[in-house]
């Protein structure tokens, strides 16, 4: 039993949506961070990113049987499969690497179409059920409300992934290469690091992140025919709102989107359809023109 300090009566009904918003936001962050890498380092708009997430989601639905071992297996298989799909995508992109981002974006869209079709062919057209580990299947009491235990654990795990990602980008050699490639890709190439390898590595990392998000987030945004589109849209909005490349900004934007999608809908049900738009407009008003110039993975 986990008890969080009880709020006053006025915020009490909104505690559960707010908590849901954190879980949702962290899930979107893990998914979107892969897109930030693709975009920031390889300068590729990866329209197949949602499909990479869906690979993880379908893996979770197929492998999870309520035990811990199946969760570990699903996580390993999902991450590897999505990373492999990322490497495949990098391979497909190699012949058009010198072309422009228009061709590259169209190529990734073709891969997304074909990949989505293959997933539906392989796993069936219905949205599959996802079984979380039995130990996490129940609910716990948070400030007098019942809340799904899985989501609470997910919040912790996703926060650990986010922290690990931050440390990997700031402190490891691979992270340094990634940041260097964002700043000056030609100089990195001059120093003897093959741009093709960086692209493959970045797409593999993006695939791994999306696959991990897909497996762990399957009980929250489940696999289905619309999953790829939903995740791609949420990731795009988060990346744009977060200032196109800043990891801290992406995290803040993801949490804001999560709260908008849950708490915002609970508070203002009539305005729900426009809240995402309003968020984009609000960020625009604050940041004015800072968007296009500010591109750094920090």
């Amino acid at each position: 039993m986990i008890a969080v300090a009880a709020g006053t009566n006025r915020i009490d009904p909104y505690l559960i949506p707010a908590l849901d918003g954190v879980a949702y936001g962290l899930l979107v962050f893990v998914a979107a961070s892969g897109l930030v890498f693709c975009f920031g380092v390889a300068n590729i708009l990866n329209l197949a990113h949602g499909t990479l997430y869906a690979i993880g989601g379908y893996t979770a639905a197929a492998l999870l049987d309520g035990g811990w071992a199946s969760l570990a297996l699903a996580l390993a298989v999902g991450v590897l499969a999505a990373a492999a799909a990322g490497v495949l995508l990098a391979g497909l992109l190699t012949p058009v690497a010198t072309g422009n981002h228009l061709t590259q974006a169209l190529l990734t869209f073709g891969v997304a179409l074909a990949g989505g079709s293959l997933l539906v062919a392989g796993f069936g057209p219905d949205d599959p059920q996802v079984q979380v580990p039995a130990a996490l299947d129940g609910s716990v009491v948070v400030a007098g409300h019942r809340y799904a235990a899985y989501r609470l654990v997910f919040i912790v795990v996703a926060a650990v992934i986010a922290a690990g990602l931050y440390l990997a980008v700031r402190r490891t050699r691979a992270g340094m290469l990634v940041r260097a490639a964002v700043d000056d890709a030609e100089m990195v190439a001059c120093m003897g690091v093959s741009p093709a390898r960086i692209r493959a590595g970045v797409l593999a990392a993006a695939g791994a992140l999306a696959g991990a998000a897909g497996v762990l987030g399957a009980p929250i945004i489940g696999p289905g025919a619309d999953t790829a589109d939903t995740v791609l849209l949420l990731s795009l909005v988060v990346v744009v709102l977060g200032g196109l490349g800043s990891m801290a900004g992406t995290l803040l934007a993801a949490l804001a989107i999560g709260e908008i999608q849950t708490l915002g809908v609970a508070l203002l049900p009539s305005a729900a359809p426009f809240l995402l738009f309003a968020a984009m407009a609000a960020v625009l008003a604050v940041r004015a023109r800072g968007f296009a110039t500010n591109r750094r993975v920090t």
Binding site: G110, A112, L113
Partner: peptide, 9 residues
Amino acid sequence: PLVLGALFV
């Protein structure tokens, strides 16, 4: 969609 995707590529 599969054929269309392949045609895209």
